[in-house]
């Protein structure tokens, strides 16, 4: 029986879709490759809006700075090192330090209406499409 919403199936589909777009942008974001923190994924919606996502675990929302201007998005901040008050360190895999990353955005996006949030360590920047750039139907007058 097919379920209306199968989370595993949608996860597999999402992972497949992501694999297909790995490092092969449909839109040129002017990014320097996946070696700069934070790594980003860019999604589009049917209405033409864009969503930029980045994994920023351990960084408080107030420690992330998102600057947006026409054609440009910059994500910057700093992740602090977690240190024990006392005792020793067995393993330290989680990096720390400052970061800054800029990507180019398609110009038809309405950067003034962009919103950003950090939830469960994931930064989400939503950028709607410019009103003028949205396709619209033209009424044909029967003159």
């Amino acid at each position: 029986m097919a379920l209306l919403f199968d989370p595993i199936d949608s996860l597999l589909r999402l992972q497949r879709d992501i694999d297909r777009f790995y490092g092969k942008p449909l839109v040129d974001f002017g990014v320097s490759g996946p070696s700069v923190f934070p790594q980003i994924n860019v999604f589009s919606r049917e209405d033409g809006s864009f969503m930029v996502r980045a994994e920023v675990p351990g960084i408080r929302p107030e420690d992330v700075r998102v600057d947006i201007e026409p054609g440009r998005l910059t994500i910057a901040g700093e992740r602090m090192a977690a240190s024990p008050e006392r005792g020793g360190v067995h393993r330290r895999e989680r990096g720390h330090g400052a970061f800054s990353r800029t990507l180019q955005l398609p110009t038809e996006l309405a950067v003034a209406e962009a919103t950003a949030s950090v939830r469960n360590g994931v930064l989400t920047v939503q950028i709607p499409k410019h009103e003028k750039a949205r396709p619209r139907q033209i009424v044909v007058d029967a003159a």
């Binding site: 999402l14 879709d17 992501i18 694999d19 297909r20 777009f21 790995y22 490092g23 092969k24 942008p25 449909l26 839109v27 974001f29 990014v31 996946p34 790594q39 980003i40 994924n41 860019v42 999604f43 589009s44 919606r45 864009f50 969503m51 994994e55």
Partner: peptide, 8 residues
Amino acid sequence: LKPVYAEY
């Protein structure tokens, strides 16, 4: 959502 660019 449809991915248009992916790094992770």
